[in-house]
Amino acid sequence: MALPRAYDRYWRTNLRYLAILLTIWFAVSFGCGILLVDELNRLRIGGAKLGFWFAQQGSIYVFVVLIFVYVYLMNRLDRRYGVNE
């Protein structure tokens, strides 16, 4: 059974949003917390080295912000396809 075109476009867009947001989170958590830690440790935020801060708290803050961005994007997508609550 073939899926309707609108259903297919909806899920393709949803997966694109997920891929983009997870890529951002990976870049921040792995890139800033592990790969770039030595360069970021030259700067300080709130008394802590910036690389350490990203590894301990920064990636969590970014993840929470990305959750809100995902909610906003999905609400907009739901309205566009008429599946909102």
Rank of each mutant, 00 (worst) to 15 (best):
I20D: 04
W53D: 04
L3A: 13
D78G: 00
R16H: 07
V65W: 01
I60W: 08
V37I: 15
I20K: 03
V37K: 15
P4T: 12
R12K: 07
Y7G: 00
F52D: 15
R79K: 12
R5M: 11
V69W: 02
L35I: 14
A19F: 10
D78P: 01
V37P: 01
R80H: 10
V28L: 07
L66G: 02
L21P: 04
G58D: 07
F54P: 02
Y7L: 13
F63D: 01
A19Q: 10
R9M: 08
G82K: 05
S59I: 00
L21K: 06
Q56N: 11
V65Q: 01
L36A: 14
L43M: 15
L35A: 12
C32Y: 13
I45H: 13
R16W: 09
Q57T: 10
R9I: 05
K49M: 08
A55R: 12
L22K: 08
Q56C: 01
R9P: 00
L36G: 09
V83Q: 07
V64T: 06
F30A: 07
L22M: 14
S59Y: 10
R5H: 11
I34E: 15
G47I: 11
V65L: 12
G58A: 08
L66D: 05
R80D: 03
L66W: 05
Y10T: 03
G47W: 07
E85V: 14
G31D: 06
N84E: 15
I60M: 07
L15N: 12
S29N: 09
M74P: 01
L50A: 14
Y7K: 11
L18V: 08
G51P: 02
R12C: 02
L73P: 01
C32I: 03
A2Q: 14
M1Q: 11
V37A: 13
